Simulated assay, not measured.
Amino acid sequence: MVQKLAPITALAAALCAFATPSWSADKGGAAWAPAPNAADQAWKLPPVPMPKDNLSTPARIELGQSLFFDPRMSGNGAMSCASCHNPSLGWSDGLKTAVGWGGQVLGRATPTVMNTAYNTQFMWDGRKKSLEDQALGPMKTPQEMNTDFGVALGRLRGNMAYVAMFEKAYPGEGVNEETIAKAIAAFERTVVVNDSPFDRWLAGDQKALTMQQWRGYKLFTDAGKGNCAACHSAPNFTDNGFHNIGIAKVGDGDPDPGRFGIKKVASMKGAFKTPGLRDIELTAPYFRDGSAATLRDVVEHYVRGGDDKSNLSPTMKPLNLNEQEKDDLVAFMKALSGQRKPIAVPYLPQ
């Protein structure tokens, strides 16, 4: 019999010791935000979408969670999906750029898993088109998990507890790459934040947002001021598009081509996928190269209109914001942090 979930061990506690978001309601009689209007409802998240051939069930989520945390899915048996997508670090890793196979430092930051269930493009360059397609990407990349799927499948098929879990989750489909991908995707679809102060305000809790956070929201959506929503659009704060935002080139090597490496269109040189922003406070540092340490640094980057202006996207214009407006934008982004939900690290099938 496979035990469902482990007690919280020291390791599990480390994984699940979530930071408390820094947002709080203004105290001392500060004013609260006005009630949301009909246009604001565009930001309300819909139910999590699921493909018809992989509708979530408890058995599929349980299997996917085990695979997500199982280091035996990597080539050296020492890395799991959770090694880089750590729930205690906003489902990222807290590093400027990812560390992969053999400790090598990779060229791009680890994106968060949070709310990727709503995405239509995956990876910084959009080379994956679904959560299922994305799930195996790091395993099959030599620089990341470097999984030998012949060995990994043999190990799973020889583990009767895992075989039973696969059969319960995907009856008659067997243990294979497709069912591994489907199970991990089913688990990742549970990694959703929809209870932030901003979400609660949209749901009618007028006191969920302070006036400062509401002012930041208005700047965020104002095309003549912040213009953030041009790319970080409703409802998941991403247009699922690709933009060159003028990240400064570092060193003498060739710059990262971004989306151009997948789609040979000149405007895509140096363009990267727009990340979603819910729980953004927890996923520092920011940008695809981790070059912004804080949310204030992010705002300052956009105030400058980017640094490398050689192939900027048309939406990148310098912003005319005063210090109060910068603070308001940061306050709003912090209001996108959801309440921390503990994640139990499962006992892995033996």
Rank of each mutant, 00 (worst) to 15 (best):
N86L: 06
K128H: 05
S130N: 08
S83V: 04
N146G: 02
W23E: 00
M139L: 15
G94F: 00
S83T: 15
P47I: 04
R72E: 10
C16P: 00
G94A: 02
A38T: 10
I61Q: 07
P71A: 06
D93W: 03
G64P: 03
K128S: 08
R108W: 10
G94E: 02
L136F: 11
S80V: 08
D26R: 12
L89T: 09
E132N: 06
W23R: 02
F69K: 01
L63S: 00
A59I: 00
P138Y: 10
G100P: 00
M139F: 14
R108N: 09
N119E: 07
Q41K: 15
A98R: 03
S92I: 00
D125A: 13
P142N: 11
S24R: 10
G126P: 09
P71L: 07
C84E: 04
K52S: 11
L55G: 02
K44R: 14
V48I: 08
W43T: 03
G64V: 07
P36K: 11
S83P: 01
V48L: 02
Y118R: 05
N54R: 10
T120C: 05
M114A: 11
A30R: 09
P51H: 07
A19T: 15
G64F: 04
G64H: 03
T120Y: 03
T20E: 15
D40E: 14
S66D: 12
N54D: 14
K96L: 06
A19W: 14
R127C: 06
P49H: 09
A35R: 15
G107P: 03
K27H: 08
G107E: 05
S74M: 05
Q104K: 06
L131E: 10
W101S: 12
P49L: 07
P36C: 08
G94Y: 02
N119R: 14
K129Q: 13
G126Q: 07
W32T: 13
R127Q: 14
A31L: 11
W32A: 12
A82M: 06
Q121W: 08
P47F: 04
V99W: 00
T20V: 15
K52G: 06
A78T: 13
A33D: 13
E132G: 01
S24G: 05
N37R: 13
G102Y: 07
R127P: 07
P36I: 08
D93L: 03
A78V: 00
T57W: 05
A135H: 09
P87K: 00
N146H: 12
T120V: 09
G102V: 01
F69H: 12
F122N: 12
K52T: 10
R60T: 08
A19V: 13
P34Y: 09
T97W: 01
L55D: 01
A109D: 02
E62D: 15
K140A: 07
P46V: 12
D70L: 00
A31K: 13
P58I: 13
E144Y: 09
S22I: 06
T112C: 08
G126H: 04
T141L: 13
F68Y: 15
K129D: 12
E132F: 00
D93Y: 00
G28V: 12
A35F: 06
W91P: 14
C16Q: 05
D93I: 01
V99F: 00
Q41P: 03
N86T: 10
A78N: 06
S130V: 09
M50W: 01
S92W: 04
L89A: 11
L89Q: 13
F68T: 10
M79H: 12
G90D: 06
S80P: 03
A30W: 02
